[in-house]
Nucleic acid binder design. Structure first.
Length: 509
RNA sequence: GGGCCGGUAACUCAGUCGGUAGAGUAUCGGCCUUUUAAGCCGAGAGUCGCAGGUUCGAGUCCUGCCCGGCCCA
C-alpha cells in the first residue's frame, strides 16, 4: 500500500522561507566582496570552557596584565547590537563564551561586515584578548574575526530551543546545537560505554567483533530483518544476538570475550524498543552464573561511582541503590508471593489460563509450554514492581534453551535476569555445553515454530559441531546498553538515548 | 493493531460561540559604547498536516488519510 498516495506535489516542493532567501543573498554578496564563505585555514588554539575556568576567577585588573591573544572557533548563538558595540555568544564543543566586537577594536569596515554579514548560526573564528564586563562575565574582546562557514538556515527560538520531539529526532544536529542537556546526555552515554569497555579489558576479556549478518538468526527468539547477498545468492539476517558466535570463540580457546555492538529486531518501535539497539555480551570460561552475579554487582557499582560519584542514582522519581549485595528472588516464588498466583493454579493449565484472563492477560492457548505462560505472567505482574536492582533466578528450562540445567532440579536453568526500575537490564546463565542436550532443546524448539514464529527456523548445525569439539564450562551475560544509559541519564524513552532513532520517512522534511 | 492527545510563520505558542490569521523569537530598515531572553521605533513573513464533506462562510464542525507523542496489546 502506498501510504503517500494522498499527498500532492506540494508536499515535496517546500518554498524557501524569507529568512533563507536573505541568507542566500548575503552569501552571494560575501562572495562578490571576494571573501570565501567556507575557508578552512583557521586553527583555534583555545576552548571556551578552558578560558572560563582558568580566567573566570581573575579580576578585571588582573586580566589587564594577561597580554596573551586567544583564538577560538565555534557557532554564533546570539548577537546583540548596541550601536558601536556588538555583544555575541560563541559556542564551541566545550561551552559558550561571550564576544565583544567594538568599533575601534576592529576597523570600521570589519565592524560593518560583522554587523551586516555575520548571522546567528554562522561558524566563525575569533582572535582577541580577554576582559571582564561590568557584570563580571568573561568576554573575548575581538581584534580579528573570520567567517568560517556561512549558515543558510535560521536557528530555532533562542529561549525555548527546539522542543518538538519529532523535529528533535529527525534533525538531531539541530537538537544538539540548541540543547546542552542533549549534548551532555550523549557525552554521558560515551563515558558509560568506555567505562564498561575498560572494565572488561582490565579483567582480561578480549574485545571481539562477530558477524552482524547471519545465515541463521539465532541466539534469541525475535523476528529478524532479512537481506540478500547477490554474489552468494543467499538470504542473510541481521543478527538478533551475537551469542552463538561468541560461544564459538570460547570453543576456540579465548576463555574471556566480550562484544559491544548493535542487535536488530524487526519489531515495533516504542519508548522501550528501537529496531537497532546496543548490546553488551560477555562470556567467561570456568565461571558460573553465580560468578556473574558478583561481576554484575561490581560492574554497576563501579559504573555508578564513575558517573554519579556515589552508589545511587535518581530514575523517574526512584532512588536506585547499587550497593551490593542486591536482592535475589526466585522466579516461581515471585509468582506465588508477589503475583499472588495460588500454587495449585500455577501447575494447572486450565486454572492458570483463567487466572490470567481475570487479570486481563491473554495467554497463547496454542503454546504448550507452561513455562512460557509463567514468563508472560511474570512480565505483566512482577517486572514493573522490581525497582531496586534485583536478580531473578530459577527460570524454567523451557524458556532457557541455551542455558545449563540446574543439577539439583533439571526443570530449571542456572540463569538469572537482572531487573532495575521495572526494566529487564541483563540476562545471564551458566552455558549449556552438552551438545546432546543442546541438540535436543533445539529440536524441541523447532517443533514450536507453529505457535511461536519468533523461534529460529533452522538449527545452527555448525554451532552444534563447535559444541561437539568441546566448549569449556562457562557463563555468559547480555546487558542492554541503551537501558543502562536510560537509567544513568534519567531518560523515560529509549529514543532519548539513541542519536538517530528510527522514524517513519517524511518526504517533505 | 486499539485508545487518548497533538500538527497554525523558520522556531516557541495563542486563536473564545463557525464570521478578514495573532504574539514573542528570528529576519529586514532605523537609534543606541557594557549588553546577555538587551531595549526603543518601523516593516515583511501563513498550503492553519493532507484530501473530501457540511455551511452563505471552516484554523474552528464531520469523514478518511499522513506524521508525531503518551498509554495499552
Amino acid at each position: 500500500m502506498d501510504k503517500n498516495k494522498n499527498r500532492n506535489k506540494g508536499d515535496f516542493m517546500q518554498e524557501d522561507s524569507q529568512v533563507i532567501k536573505v541568507r542566500r543573498e548575503k552569501l552571494k554578496k560575501i562572495e562578490e566582496m571576494g571573501v570565501n564563505p567556507y575557508p578552512n585555514d583557521f586553527k583555534p588554539l583555545d576552548r571556551a570552557k578552558y578560558i572560563k575556568e582558568k580566567y573566570g576567577p581573575l579580576t578585571s585588573e588582573e586580566l589587564e596584565k594577561v597580554k596573551v591573544e586567544f583564538s577560538l572557533a565555534g557557532r554564533l548563538m546570539a548577537k546583540r547590537e548596541m550601536g558601536k558595540l556588538i555583544f555575541a555568544h560563541l559556542q564551541d564543543a566545550t561551552d559558550k563564551i561571550q564576544l565583544l566586537v567594538a568599533k575601534g577594536e576592529v576597523d570600521a569596515e570589519n565592524f560593518k561586515f560583522f554587523k551586516k554579514m555575520i548571522d546567528i548560526g554562522d561558524i566563525i573564528g575569533v582572535k582577541g584578548r580577554i576582559i571582564k564586563t561590568k557584570t563580571g562575565e568573561i568576554t573575548i574582546l575581538v581584534k580579528e574575526f573570520k567567517l568560517l562557514t556561512k549558515s543558510l538556515r535560521p536557528l530555532p527560538e533562542k529561549y525555548h530551543g527546539l522542543r518538538d520531539t519529532e523535529l528533535r529526532y529527525r534533525m538531531r544536529y539541530l537538537d544538539l546545537i540548541m540543547n546542552e542537556r542533549v549534548r551532555e546526555l550523549f557525552r554521558t552515554r560515551t563515558r558509560i560505554v568506555q567505562y564498561i569497555r575498560n572494565y572488561f579489558i582490565s579483567e582480561g576479556f578480549l574485545e571481539v567483533e562477530t558477524p552482524m549478518m547471519h545465515p541463521i538468526a539465532g541466539g534469541a527468539t525475535a523476528r529478524p530483518f532479512i537481506t540478500y547477498h547477490n554474489a552468494l545468492e543467499m538470504n542473510l539476517y541481521l543478527r538478533i544476538a551475537p551469542e552463538l558466535y561468541l560461544k564459538r570463540l570460547i570453543v576456540g580457546g579465548f576463555e574471556r570475550v566480550f562484544e559491544i555492538n548493535r542487535n536488530f529486531r524487526n519489531e515495533g518501535v516504542s519508548t522501550r524498543h528501537n529496531p537497532e539497539f546496543t548490546m553488551l555480551e560477555f562470556y567467561e570460561a570456568y565461571a558460573t552464573y553465580e560468578d556473574l552475579i558478583k561481576r554484575t554487582e561490581e560492574l554497576f557499582y563501579g559504573l555508578c561511582m564513575e558517573i554519579k560519584g556515589k552508589p545511587t542514582l535518581e530514575y523517574q522519581g526512584h532512588t536506585i541503590d547499587f550497593t551490593p549485595p542486591w536482592k535475589r528472588i526466585d522466579f516461581m516464588k515471585s509468582l506465588i508471593e508477589i503475583a499472588g498466583v495460588p500454587e495449585e493454579v500455577l501447575y494447572d493449565r486450565e486454572k492458570l489460563f483463567n487466572f490470567a484472563r481475570e487479570k486481563g492477560i491473554e495467554l497463547n492457548q496454542k503454546d504448550p509450554r507452561i513455562g512460557k505462560w509463567w514468563t508472560k505472567l511474570f512480565e505483566e505482574l512482577i517486572e514493573p514492581k522490581l525497582i531496586q536492582p534485583t536478580f531473578v533466578v530459577g527460570f524454567p528450562i523451557e524458556v532457557s534453551p541455551l542455558a545449563r540445567r540446574n543439577e539439583a532440579n533439571p526443570e530449571i536453568a542456572d540463569r538469572f535476569e537482572l531487573y532495575i526500575a521495572g526494566k529487564e537490564v541483563a540476562n545471564a546463565f551458566s552455558e549449556l555445553n552438552d551438545p546432546r542436550d543442546q541438540r535436543q532443546r533445539f529440536e524441541e524448539q523447532i517443533k514450536l515454530r507453529e505457535v511461536d514464529d519468533e523461534i529460529p527456523p533452522e538449527i545452527d548445525e555448525d554451532f552444534l559441531r563447535a559444541l561437539e569439539y568441546g566448549m569449556p564450562p562457562c557463563a555468559g551475560e547480555g546487558i542492554g546498553i541503551d537501558r543502562v544509559v536510560m537509567l544513568f541519564t534519567d531518560s523515560p524513552s529509549i529514543r532519548e538515548v539513541i542519536l538517530f532513532p528510527h522514524l517513519r520517512r517524511k518526504e517533505d522534511l
